[in-house]
Design a binder for these strands. Sequence first.
DNA 1: GTGAAAGCGCTAACAA
DNA 2: TTGTTAGCGCTTTCAC
Lengths: 330, 330
Amino acid sequence: MTHTIKDVAKLAGVGIATVSRVINQNGYVSPDTAKRVMKAMAELDFTPSPLARGLVSRKTATIGLVIPDVANPFFAEVARGTEDAAIAKGFTVILCNSDWKAEREKMYSKLLRQKWAEGVIAVGSRSSESSLRELIDPLPMVFVDRFTMLPGSDSVWSDNKKGGLLATQHLIDMGCRKLAHISGPTHSPASIARQKGFLLGIKEANVSWEIVKGDFRYRSGYDAGMELLTRDVPPDGIFAGNDLMAVGILQAAASLHIRIPDDLLVIGYDNIAMAEYVAPPLSTVDQPAYEMGRIAFDMLHKKMQDETRESRNVREFEPLLILRESTNRK
Amino acid sequence: MTHTIKDVAKLAGVGIATVSRVINQNGYVSPDTAKRVMKAMAELDFTPSPLARGLVSRKTATIGLVIPDVANPFFAEVARGTEDAAIAKGFTVILCNSDWKAEREKMYSKLLRQKWAEGVIAVGSRSSESSLRELIDPLPMVFVDRFTMLPGSDSVWSDNKKGGLLATQHLIDMGCRKLAHISGPTHSPASIARQKGFLLGIKEANVSWEIVKGDFRYRSGYDAGMELLTRDVPPDGIFAGNDLMAVGILQAAASLHIRIPDDLLVIGYDNIAMAEYVAPPLSTVDQPAYEMGRIAFDMLHKKMQDETRESRNVREFEPLLILRESTNRK
DNA sequence: GTGAAAGCGCTAACAA
DNA sequence: TTGTTAGCGCTTTCAC
C-alpha cells in the first residue's frame, strides 16, 4: 500500500542512497537526478516511514506535553499553543495528563523516553528537582510555569510571587482590611509562589488574613467561598489562586446575595478568557497561556537542534494586573 | 544508555529470539530459561524499543485524537477520558486540534497514518462522509458526537436532535412564547442536530422564534445575548447550543439587569462542570463527556484487536434533561 | 525448546 | 556525484 524508498529508487532508476539524499537534502545529488527522484516520489505519493527513520536517526519529530489537567482552561490554552507551534514545525505532541501526581509524571517520562520523544514540555510540574533531573535525563526539556535551576533546561514562566504580591497589594489599596487567599494545590509551584506573594503583601500591611486550601478547580473556589462568606465576620477581599476558583467565589457570593464589589472584592489569577465575561468582570493577573505554550515549543525546538544543549534559557513574562469590576470599589 | 535485546540475550546466555519470545509471550520457552531472561531484563532495566518493534510488527501503541479544540471544556473532558483509558492499556495519544477545519483534519489524518498510529478517535468531526472515508482508510476509527453510517467505524454519541427537542419543549412547557436559539458552528454535526431539535420543538408549538449563529465559545454566547436582550421585544427563553454560550448569555443578562429565571429562561447543552455553579445554576442537557471519551477508546481498542474490523458498533447515550434554577419559573 | 539468519524501511559510511 | 553495504533493534521463519 504505502511505498518504500526502494520503489522510488527503482522507478527513478537510481540507488536508494540517492533517494535518501534528496529526502534529507544532504549530500551531493545532481539537479537532474534530484528532479527524477522527486518526480518518482510524487508519482508514488511516497512519504518516508518515520518509524524506520527514527530507528536509525533517533529522530521522531514527537514531543511530550506533560500537563496536570487539560480540563483546566489555563492548561488547555497552553496545550493549544504548543500544539499549534509544534504542528507548524512538523512535530507531533503526545498528551500526558499527570493529574498533579508525581508517579504519573514519572510514568510518562519513562514512556516518552522509551518512545523516543525528542523532548518534553512540562507544565506546572510537581516533581521535585531531583526526580526532575531523572525525568529529564536524556531529553531536552522546557518547563512552563515552573522555574528551574536545572542546567540544560529552559523555562518560560512569569513571576508568580510578584503576581501574587500585586494582587494582594491591589486589594489592600482598595481598602480591604480582612483578606483571604484561596490557594491552589500544594504541589503546584505556581500556586506556592502566588501564596508567598500573598503573604508578602500581607506582611507589609496591617490587615488580618487567612488562607483556605483549594485545588484550582471551580468547585473548590465555590466551596471555599461558601465557607468564608457565611462566617460571622467574612473577609472583605479575596485573592483566589486562579480564575476558575475566583469565578466559583463570585457564584458563591451571588447565591448569598453578597454584592461584588460593594461588599466584597475578588481577584483571580491567569486571565482566562472567561474572566472578562463573568458577572461582574473579574480582576486578575495576566498570564498569556497560549503564548507561553507557543514559546515553550519554540525554545524546545531550538534546543533540540542544538548539539550542546547546555544553554539555560529563561523567558519571563511580567505579571500584569488586569483591573475589572470585581475590585472596582467606588 | 538504554539496553537492547542483544544485551539481555548475552546476559541471560540465550539467543535474541528467545528473549523476543519471552517479551511477547509467544512461542515455546522453557520456564527455566524464561526466568533467566526475565531476570536479565530486570537487571538491565530493559524495555524494548517501540520504534524497532513497530517497524517490523506495525504496532505502535499510539492513537490519534482529532478534536476541534481542547480549549473547549466539553472536548477537554472527552480528551481526559480517552487519555485515561488509553494509558491504562499502554497506549499513547497524539493530540490533534482541528479547529473545526477540514483541511486540518485531513492533514492530521495523513500525519497519523504516516506515523503508524493504530487508530483514531475523531470528535465532533466536520469532514464530509467521503473525505472521512478517505481519512479512515487503513485505520480503525471511532467517532464521538458524530453519527456515521460508514462501514467499519464505530461511534459513541447521543441523540443531539432529541436533546435539542427536549430542551426546546422544556422552555415551552415553562411558558416561553418567544424563543431564541444560539447555534454552534455550522460545520459541527452535533450543533446542526441540536438546531434541528429546536426547530422540531418549535413546529409543534405556536411560538415565535429565531436563530442566532454562535461558535460554541463563551464570547459568542455573550455577544448573542447582548444583541437579543437589547431588542424592543427580547425573547423570554433561550436555548444555547452549548453550556459555554449559555453562560455567556447569563452574563449578558446580568449586566443588563435582566433577571433569570424571572424575565428570561436559559438552557444550555453538555452539562459541563461549570453549569452547576454559575449563577443561577444552569439547566442543560447532559452529555457524559469523560465517559464518552473512555468508551470511545475502549471501542477503538477492541476494534484494533479485531482482525476483520467489519463490525459497526454504536454506543448511544440518552440525552438527559438536567433542570436547575435557570429555567425554574415560579 | 532454542538459535541463526533474514528483513521491516531507512541513514550513513565507504567505495567507486 | 552516485551505488553498495552495514547496521538501527526488533520479530519471525526455519533449521537444529
